[in-house]
């Protein structure tokens, strides 16, 4: 094993690492917003809104994100819609992750007993006051551990964007391999860099779950 070669190309790998962190952070923010809204709508009483949300969630959870990426990046131009690579990646990962987060949010909200809703109604709270003051604060304790668990998956899933040529960490790793022919060392380095972010996150999830168990 010769990690010296990795050190020589450290700038490329670091560049990829930063892109991975950037796209992950951005999709975490955007898909959390999408997922929160979709999850809230799914638990609302507006029947006409629920069906399209269910369709959205099932479609994006029921197909490989790779295919979603191909359809948006390679497929849309055939329909006359041109989209940059960055926008395609951001859009697809936002919708894909938003669908999973919607389910996490829905399950969290539904875990709060109906008695809480009714008690909120009997003191005259509006739906949005009830959600903000009673349901969401309690649901959040249920939602946060799986949500952060999902963020870890999302971080790793963004590596799929390398397939369409997005210059995140795996793509840059492959570049380095092409130049050096040292796949093992390079992939190990890349894996270690994913681990550096995901391990603290997963410890954080453990901590949240332990705290919830005692509370």
């Amino acid at each position: 094993m010769d990690f010296h070669i990795v050190w020589v190309y450290r700038h490329l790998i670091l560049q990829g690492f930063l892109v991975t962190v950037e796209i992950s952070a951005m999709t975490i923010v955007t898909s959390t917003i999408v997922g929160l809204i979709a999850g809230l709508l799914k638990t609302s009483k507006h029947k006409w809104l629920i069906s399209p949300i269910i369709a959205y969630v099932e479609i994006f959870r029921g197909s490989p994100v790779l295919i979603q990426l191909f359809m948006v990046y390679f497929g849309l131009p055939y329909l006359g819609v041109s989209i940059s690579m960055f926008n395609a990646v951001l859009l697809v990962f936002t919708l894909y992750s938003g669908a999973y987060i919607a389910e996490i949010v829905r399950a969290g909200i539904e875990s709060i007993s109906n008695g809480q809703r009714e008690a909120a109604m009997t003191i005259g709270l509006t739906y949005s006051q009830m959600m903000r003051k009673i349901i969401l604060p309690q649901a959040l304790r249920v939602i946060l551990p799986p949500l952060f668990g999902w963020y870890i998956s999302l971080l790793k899933d963004t590596s799929i964007a390398s397939v369409i040529g997005y210059t995140e960490m795996v793509f840059q790793g492959q570049n380095v391999i092409n130049m050096t022919d040292r796949p093992f060392e390079v992939y190990l380095t890349v894996a270690a860099l994913y681990f550096i972010i995901s391990y603290p996150l997963s410890k954080f999830v453990d901590w949240m779950e332990r705290r919830r168990a005692y509370a």
């Binding site: 007993s113 008695g115 008690a119 009997t122 003191i123």
Partner: peptide, 15 residues
């Protein structure tokens, strides 16, 4: 609902 108070068997306090 603001004018008629309701007390439940299971209390339903906000924990």
């Amino acid at each position: 609902r603001a004018e008629v108070g309701m007390v439940f068997q299971q209390f339903n306090l906000f924990p």
